[in-house]
């Protein structure tokens, strides 16, 4: 559904995208994960035909993003990162307007948005500006779905909304996926990766990993330990000073550690921690999360 081949884009001296290649299959929920400024928005704008790539090629639903841009504009649904609707128009008026620019109306494709629109229906005459964050997000999604697009581009839709609304939003995306919509969604939040079928990790314009969340996690080769104890900060400092430490950083209330010789160094670490007075410290093997993988690949 989406094919990206060696796409390159620069702004002056800054390289926004460098030889980015990825492919999203029909009906896939694909996550583009990376921090602010990694190039996510640039890629979205190229795929929605708002920016021209400087090199490489890309197609959306078999249409070239440069040559056939008009066809993509007719078909694709797009929710930009800063999309905030028309605050002074009502829920219904917003929806009507976005339907009309795609030469359709609310009724024609109502089925696709029915379940998303349901909680909004009682407020259809309320101005969009007076809706809660979660409601706004739902309405924005309805507006980008109203022409029943086969492919949907969502640029950071979950930034700035509370955890409950985000959860509901992801549930909605899974429902849409069941209806056959291909979705490319970006997020800076690593913990949302597991909600996607496949993800691409992006950092400073480079893709640093691509695959299912499980594949990416299994690509983390070193044994990982979670160290916890009473005095986390002192523990962290001591771990950083330990000669056999390969990497160590805070992760929640614990410290994630990899060792230079893996399992072989664990007993030495235990001794070291005892020597440093961390009697209560515990060392447990732990499965890495996407964030650990991202960090490991960033270093390469």
């Amino acid at each position: 559904m989406i094919e990206v081949n060696n796409i390159r884009k620069t702004y002056g001296d800054t390289v926004a995208l460098d030889a980015v290649t990825l492919s999203v299959g029909k009906g896939e929920l694909f996550g583009l994960i990376g921090p602010d400024g990694a190039g996510k928005t640039s890629l979205f704008r190229i795929l929605t035909t708002l920016l021209l790539p400087e090199g490489g090629s890309a197609t959306v639903n078999h249409h070239d993003v440069v040559k056939d841009y008009k066809k993509i504009r007719k078909e694709a649904g797009y929710m930009p990162g800063n999309f905030s609707l028309y605050q002074d128009l009502s829920v219904e008026e917003n929806l009507q307007f976005f339907a009309s620019i795609f030469h359709t109306d609310i009724q024609t494709n109502f089925e696709i948005i029915r379940s998303i629109y349901e909680p909004l229906a009682p407020f259809k005459n309320r101005r969009a500006g007076a809706l809660s964050g979660g409601m706004k997000q739902k309405l924005a999604l309805c507006c980008s779905l109203i022409h029943n697009p086969p492919v949907l581009f969502l640029d950071e839709p979950t930034t700035g909304v509370d955890a409950l609304s985000r959860q509901e939003f992801w549930e909605t995306l899974h429902e849409l996926k069941k209806k056959g919509v291909t979705i490319l969604v970006s997020t800076p939040y690593m913990d949302e990766a597991s909600l996607c079928d496949r993800i691409a990790m992006i950092q400073a314009g480079h893709l640093i990993g691509i695959g299912t969340p499980a594949e990416i996690i299994s690509g983390f080769t070193k044994p990982l330990w979670s160290v916890s104890g009473m005095d986390i900060y002192r523990l962290l400092k001591d771990l950083q000073d330990f000669q056999q430490t390969d990497s160590c950083s805070l992760f929640g209330n614990n410290i994630h550690v990899t060792l230079k010789n893996g399992v072989a160094d664990v007993s030495a670490l235990k001794e070291y921690l005892l020597r440093k007075g961390h009697e209560t410290a515990s060392i447990n093997p732990v499965a890495p999360v996407i964030e650990d993988c991202f960090i490991e690949r960033m270093k390469e």
């Binding site: 704008r45 694709a76 929710m79 930009p80 990162g81 800063n82 999309f83 905030s84 609707l85 028309y86």
Partner: peptide
């Protein structure tokens, strides 16, 4: 408000 991007796309 980002609506221009939607209109253009």
């Amino acid at each position: 408000t980002g609506t221009m991007e939607v209109l253009l796309a």
